[in-house]
Design a protein around this nucleic acid. Structure first.
Length: 126
RNA sequence: CCAGACGGUCGGACGGUCGCUCCCCUUAAGGGAGAGGAAAGUCCGGGCUCCAUGGAAACACGGCGCCGGGUAACGCCCGGCCGGUCGACCCCCGGGUCGGCUGAGGGAAAGCGCCACAGAGACGAUACCGCCCCGUUUCGGGGCAAGGGUGAAAAGGUGCGGUAAGAGCGCACCGCCGCGCCAGCAAUGGAGCGGGCAGGGCAAGCCCCGCCGGGAGCAAGACCGAAUAGGGACGGUGCGUCCUGCCGACGCUGCGGCUGAGGAAGGACAGGCGGGUUUCCGCGCCUUUAGCCAGCGCGCUAUGCGCCGUCCGGGUUGGUUGCUUGAGGCCGUGCGCGAGCGCGCGCCCCAGAGGAAUGGCCGUCCCUUCUCUUCGAAGGACAGAACCCGGCUUACAGACCGUCUGGCUUU
RNA sequence: GCGGGCGUAGCUCAGGGGUAGAGCAUCACCUUGCCAAGGUGAGGGUCGUGCGUUCGAAUCGCAUCGCCCGCU
C-alpha cells in the first residue's frame, strides 16, 4: 500500500470505530476544524476512544435526496477506511461533515484531502 | 417505413480485486444471499399488537354512492348500462351503426339556501323593439308570444297546415310524461297504448336516503436487566426527644390563625381513572375528602434522624425479541369475455440493517452526448427497503411488443 | 410513524362563489431655498402549479410542489 509511506507500518494500524452517540457529535461542535473541498473535519481528544480512533460522518439533507446522501457517505467512508489507520492520531474522535463537492470530486483527490486534513489537525493541536 | 394516442413488458450486462451486513459451517479457511417498479408521496384498504377480557343501543363526526361481478377488504380492479366528446360510415336536412377517448354517474314532486351583471322579464317570472285588429291614426283600447335583442339559462325542436296576427291550435317525425307488456340477475333497453306537453340549474352548498367506520400505532408490544441515585420491608447500632414527642382510615372544640388554584430547588424517580358523548347491563382498580397550627379527650411506649446489612418492588442507558414463510414467487393445467379462482401433495426460499450493509478502484461490451476522419473524452432516466401485504397517485432516459389513427412507398 | 397549518402586489396581511383589496414601500406632482414630514394621483398580480365542479373559482373538490409547526 502506498499510503503507509509517510505514516505507520501495516502492523501498527489503528482500529477505527464508529461514533454513534449524539452527545459525542455535539461535543465536537467547538473543536478545532479544518476544511477541504469535499468536507469539513473536526477532531477532539477523548479517553473513550481508547487505543484507536472513532469517526462519525454527517451528511445533511441539504446535500440531496437519499440516493445522493448514501453515495456521499459511502465514498467518504471508503476514504476514511483507506487513510485513517495510517495517519490519524490515536485516542481521538473525528467528525467529517460532508459538502456538496463530495458527490462529484475525484476519489483520489478525496484521499489526499483526508490525509492533508489529518496532518493539519495534528499540527494545530501541538 | 415514419409520426401520434392508448395499453403492456423491461429498465444496463459480464468479470477481477480490496471491503461491508446477515446466514451456514468452522481451529483457521471457506461457502451462500444482499434495494424498487415505483422501495417515494403517505391518499385509501387489511393483517398484526396494545388500549381492562366486555356486550348493546342512540347521537355526533368522517367517508363512500349507476348495475353486476372479483377480493381478506377497499375510495381498487373487471364486465355491462347511461351520458359527454372525437373520427369513420349509412342516410330523407333529423337520426342511426361502429370504433377511440372520457365521466366523484343516488336523491332537486322532504325542506332550507344561492342564481351576480346584462336584460322588458330569472323562478311558478315577462312584453322593450315588435306583429295584428279597432278607433277621433303624434296617441288610445284590445289580441299575440312566431321574429329581433340580453343572458350560462327565457316555458319542447323541425316541417306542413292553420290564423286578423299568432299559439301543440291541428297533424307528421324526434324529444317528454303516464300505463302495463316483452328482454335482462340488475342498471337499463325495446316496441305498443294513452296524454298535446305539464317550469329550470346547483347537492365537489346545507341536507335526505342507503352502506361502512371503536382508538392508537412495530418508537405497537413482550422479555432480561449494569453502575449510580432513589423507594419499601426487616434486623442491628448511635444520637435526640419523652416537662414531652409522635402516630391514628380515633373523637371533639375553635364562626381561631397561617398557607393554599402556587414559589424555589432537584429528578429517569412510579399514579388514575377506564376508547368522542350519553344511557343501560356487567366488572376491575385506586384514593380517603388539602395540609399545617392551638387546646382537650382517648390510645401507644416508643418515635424521629443518621449509619451498616439482607431482601423486595419500580425501571433508565443497554441487550434480546417482535423480524420476516407470506392473502409468497415460478411452472403446468382447468374454469371464466375479464378482473380472477381452483388444482398439482410440482419446483423455489428471494434483504432484514439499527449513526443504519448492498461500496471504492480497474477491465470488456451496450447505449447517450461532444469532437466528428480516426484516436478519444464525459456520462448512464427516476430514484435507496426499515413490521408486512393489496391498491391508488406522482417521478422516469431509453428499448421492445400489441391495438387504433394519419402520412409515404410498393403490389 | 402519526397529526396540523400556510402559499394573494417588492414586504406584512385582508378577502371563503359574481370587477382582487388595505397598510408600508416605489414613481410623478403639489408644498419648501433644499431635505424630511404632509397632501394629491399613478403604476405594479400566472391569487404556488395542474385537473375538475359550476354560467362563472383567489374562494368549492382532488392531485401535486414548496415552507413551517406539534406529538411519539
Amino acid at each position: 500500500m502506498p499510503e503507509n509511506q509517510s505514516g505507520r507500518s501495516d502492523s501498527a494500524k489503528l482500529k477505527v470505530a464508529v461514533l454513534k452517540k449524539r452527545r459525542d457529535f455535539l461535543a465536537l461542535r467547538n473543536s478545532p476544524k479544518t476544511g477541504a473541498p469535499a468536507f469539513l473535519m473536526a477532531a477532539r481528544r477523548n479517553p473513550e476512544a481508547g487505543d484507536g480512533v472513532r469517526v462519525g460522518l454527517t451528511v445533511t439533507k441539504k446535500l440531496g435526496g437519499a440516493v445522493q446522501r448514501n453515495r456521499i457517505r459511502r465514498r467518504l467512508r471508503a476514504a476514511v477506511r483507506e487513510v485513517f489507520p495510517f495517519h490519524a492520531e490515536a485516542g481521538k474522535d473525528y467528525v467529517l461533515i460532508a459538502r456538496s463537492a463530495a458527490h462529484s470530486r475525484k476519489y483520489a483527490a478525496i484521499l489526499d484531502d483526508v490525509k492533508q486534513a489529518l496532518l493539519r489537525l495534528a499540527k494545530d493541536h501541538k
